[in-house]
């Protein structure tokens, strides 16, 4: 199963990167969201899947799932939410001001 989830993470990374390389801002934001999904799955897989009970301590249970990746992912989910919402508003403002959401048209004009 870990191999399959690794591949799924890889596919999420690939589609995320592909979207990231597009010109339109909405696609780029979708790309970053996909990337973070991929990363979460990636971290979770590395901690081994399904080796015991959920990490909530109960009397008499010895085997628990690795809690560390979960803590990392929890932090990451919240942060990626912050980033996504910031990017969304940024994209909204930028396209409103510049009347385009094409990144290639938004490059700076001065090269000096």
């Amino acid at each position: 199963m870990e191999i399959i989830t690794s591949m799924l993470a890889g596919i999420l990374f690939a589609t995320g990167v592909y979207n990231l390389l597009q010109k339109q801002m909405l696609r780029i934001i979708i790309g970053t969201a996909l990337l973070s999904h991929g990363a979460h799955l990636f971290i979770l897989t590395m901690g081994k899947l399904k080796r015991g009970k959920p990490p909530i301590l109960v009397e008499g249970v010895e085997n628990y799932v690795d809690p560390l990746p979960q803590a990392l992912i929890l932090t990451s989910i919240v942060i990626s939410f912050g980033v996504t919402s910031f990017l969304l508003v940024l994209a909204y403002r930028a396209s409103l001001l510049n009347e385009t959401d094409n990144m290639e048209e938004l490059r700076g004009s001065d090269h000096e």
């Binding site: 979770l44 909530i56 799932v65 979960q70």
Partner: peptide, 8 residues
Amino acid sequence: VLYRAPDL
């Protein structure tokens, strides 16, 4: 859920 991470 399936991988026993309820908080996540």
